[in-house]
Amino acid sequence: MKIAFDAKRFFHNTSGLGNYSRDLVRILSQYYPENEYILLNKNRSERGKEILERQDVRFVETSKGKFSRQLKMGKDAQREGADIFHGLSGELPLKWSKEPIRKIVTIHDLIFMRCPNYYSFFDRKIHLWKFKKAASSADKIIAISEQTKRDIITYLKVPESKIEVIYQGCHKAFKEHQSNELINTVKEKFNLPERYILNVGTIEERKNLLSIVKGIKDTEIPLVVVGRKTDYYKKVLAFIRKNKIDKQVLFLEGVSMDELAVLYKSADIFVYPSFFEGFGIPVIEALFSKTVVITSNTSCLPEAGGKDSVYIDPRNDLDLGAKIRFLWENESERKRRAEKSFTFVQKFNDEPIAAQLMNLYKKIL
């Protein structure tokens, strides 16, 4: 079987969609090396180069020309003799030749419909048009959570029978054992406090970092934040400075995946009070790291967190603060929840996810 992928995100996104794309190709190649996996894009990068070194994975340069991703990538896949084309980020090419090929698209979320205030009018219209086109031309749609499946049915008017829920996993670094040498190096490099709570994700309004900062005000609990800064960061920083808790909050950027794994495993609590997510990969990363999670009781986050994570209303700073303090002061409760959650999170391991993907590919053929 030949499977072609739109590899734009594979090569050029450092987080989110890029991690999903790289992990998906990696696990398919690992567990089903008898197939051929074709990565289509106008260029390649250093990202994912270890995956491209596998015999069953190869890069194909998309035909030159304007809008080649939309107008030529599909025909390129057909020219390569691909049986299936998989769009990994909510889009499919618009043009195809007469050669037979089956089409799958992964839709991660419809946040631009759920939370329109975070997007411009123009962006919402473009996203909706692209997603509707892809959903219409696909033979099957992969939703990465039950929440996303419900949103696809509601907003894109797609029949339930066309949608398959296949969860995503996370990078292998969070499942590996990091050496004491690396752990000590990371602690020294970032000057980490002895104990801390952790938040990971783009520093934007939807992720709701300000609620965590409000929750630890009037405590001595250190907070480590890993994520790219947006304009929202200024709002968070203003609150930190006004309340004189600068020494309590540490912002990190440019963290490698292995370093991030150490940060998760060394944290006492992972806190993720997002208003809305398509899935919430950082929650899975924390659970694989055996770190207890506090997250929102909204969207898909209870799907990712399981019954032993701690849930809060993301609009209730007092509730969040109380639950942070409770877990911070109760080591046995942290360990109990972390151990039970580690058992739960095994459903997001590579092998079962790869098997679900392969079963879907075989089914549409």
Rank of each mutant, 00 (worst) to 15 (best):
I245T: 09
N199I: 04
S256Q: 10
S137F: 05
D83W: 04
R315Y: 12
P193F: 02
I126G: 09
N316E: 10
R336Q: 14
L250P: 02
G16H: 10
S256T: 15
N243L: 02
T62F: 04
N330A: 02
K242W: 04
E36R: 03
S145N: 01
T154I: 00
A267E: 07
D151A: 03
R26I: 06
Q346G: 11
R102Y: 07
T219V: 04
S120W: 06
E253I: 02
L223C: 13
V158G: 09
I107Q: 01
I364S: 08
E253D: 13
L263E: 06
I353M: 08
G278Q: 05
C170T: 15
I221H: 09
I3K: 01
S341N: 12
N243Q: 11
L156F: 10
I294G: 03
I240Q: 13
S120P: 05
I364H: 09
D139W: 03
S332M: 09
K207M: 13
F251M: 04
F85H: 00
K290A: 12
V57G: 09
E277A: 08
Q147K: 13
T14G: 10
L94K: 13
A338I: 05
L260V: 01
Q178N: 09
V105G: 08
S137M: 10
N117C: 12
L250A: 02
I142N: 03
D6N: 14
P159Q: 11
S29W: 07
E34P: 00
F10Y: 15
N43F: 01
S45Y: 06
N208T: 09
K49C: 06
I142V: 11
K130Y: 10
I353A: 02
L39I: 03
I101T: 06
E329K: 14
K307H: 08
G81N: 07
R315L: 15
N349D: 15
A82L: 03
L209R: 09
K149R: 15
K340M: 11
L260R: 06
Q178V: 07
S89C: 13
W328P: 14
W96N: 09
